Amino acid sequence: MEGLPDADGLTVGQVSAHLGVTVRALHHWDGIGLARPSLRTHAGYRLYTAADLERLHRIVVYREIGLGLDRIRTVLDDPTADVPGALRAQRDRIAERIERLQRLGDGLDRMIEAHERGPLLTAEQQRGIFGPGWDPEWPAQARRSYGDTAQWLQYAERSAARGPEEWRDVADAVAGLDRALGDAMDAGVRPGSPEAERLVERHREVFASYFPLTRRMQVCLGRRYEADPAFAAHYDGIRTGLAAWFRRIVDASARAHGIDPDTATWE
């Protein structure tokens, strides 16, 4: 007990300061009979002896490593107690907790990195998964534009849980949807038809790989797909006029669900 006096007669306040435990804890241990001061003054105040401090020191150490008070009482007072066994068991529990905390820390590191840069993939992996036309700078540009939104946070959380194979599945789902949209337009699928409605629902399901997409948000995306040159070039590269056709089927679906596409906002 380095730094503790070896004389008898310390008050509860002095012991609290020396051991770094609260007066309330000392009173509690006294009340349950775990560590009682052995001396009493003429005025009735209770004082701790050097032997009391030794016991308290052991209680503090055992509590610090995670033993409960009942287990501490057994270790201190039961002459038949297997103290090394109890300490080994506690050490094993602490090791398990450290491992869990390490996994949690690793997960937090991935989430932080995903929040800062999107997919946790190298530039080469991104091009291999999303195609040669993919620009690895796009996620960084998106973060600068949308990094303070709830949708970016949702996107980052999903990104943190994905490796190359999971992202390949996402890319395959997007590519499959693009093909289905192009084929449907070629087949003359009309906005508002059951076939068009299924494609609109499929788009929302596929997009949920990034973040949940409401119908109003989908209307906003449809407008952007048609108006933004980069998005329009992507869809019109699949089929000429596909961006405008996709907006029409989304708008028709929105009206069927009671949403005015002309006034829909990102919500």
Rank of each mutant, 00 (worst) to 15 (best):
G13H: 08
E205S: 03
R117I: 03
E195C: 01
G128Y: 12
A160F: 03
A243R: 01
L221C: 11
M217P: 04
V250C: 02
L104C: 05
L67K: 01
G131R: 05
R216C: 01
A114D: 03
E99T: 08
T214F: 04
L221V: 11
L53A: 03
D228P: 00
Q126A: 02
G147R: 04
L69A: 08
G20H: 14
H203W: 09
A171S: 15
A196Y: 06
R117Q: 13
A232Q: 14
R24N: 13
Y225R: 04
D92G: 05
V189Y: 04
T11K: 11
G188Y: 09
G13C: 06
A227Y: 06
Y235P: 02
E195Q: 11
V60L: 04
W138A: 06
E165K: 03
A150I: 03
E197W: 00
W134P: 00
L213A: 05
G222W: 01
V83Q: 09
L104M: 11
I112Q: 14
G133M: 04
Q90G: 00
H115T: 13
S159F: 07
A89T: 11
L120R: 12
V23E: 13
D186F: 02
L199Y: 09
D260T: 05
P229S: 11
Q90L: 00
I65T: 14
D92L: 02
A173N: 13
I32D: 12
A256M: 02
E226V: 01
V206E: 09
I59H: 05
D92K: 03
T11G: 06
R144V: 08
Y225T: 10
E226F: 04
D135E: 06
R216V: 06
T149M: 01
L4M: 15
A17R: 15
L53K: 09
T49E: 10
F246D: 13
R190V: 09
G241Q: 08
Q90A: 01
A264F: 07
A142T: 13
V23P: 00
Q141P: 05
E165S: 02
R143W: 14
E157I: 01
V200E: 05
I72R: 01
V75Q: 10
T240M: 00
Y62V: 08
Q90V: 00
R46T: 06
L39T: 09
E201F: 06
F207W: 15
R93Q: 15
S209F: 12
D148K: 01
A232W: 09
V23C: 02
A256S: 12
R198L: 10
R24M: 08
Q14H: 11
G131E: 13
I59L: 06
L108W: 07
G176A: 02
L221Y: 15
D106W: 04
R36H: 09
T265M: 05
Q218N: 07
L104E: 14
A244K: 07
R97K: 12
Q154A: 11
I59G: 02
W134E: 11
D30F: 02
V61A: 13
S38Y: 13
I129D: 09
T265V: 10
L104D: 14
E195S: 04
G107A: 03
L104K: 04
R97W: 07
E99K: 02
H18C: 14
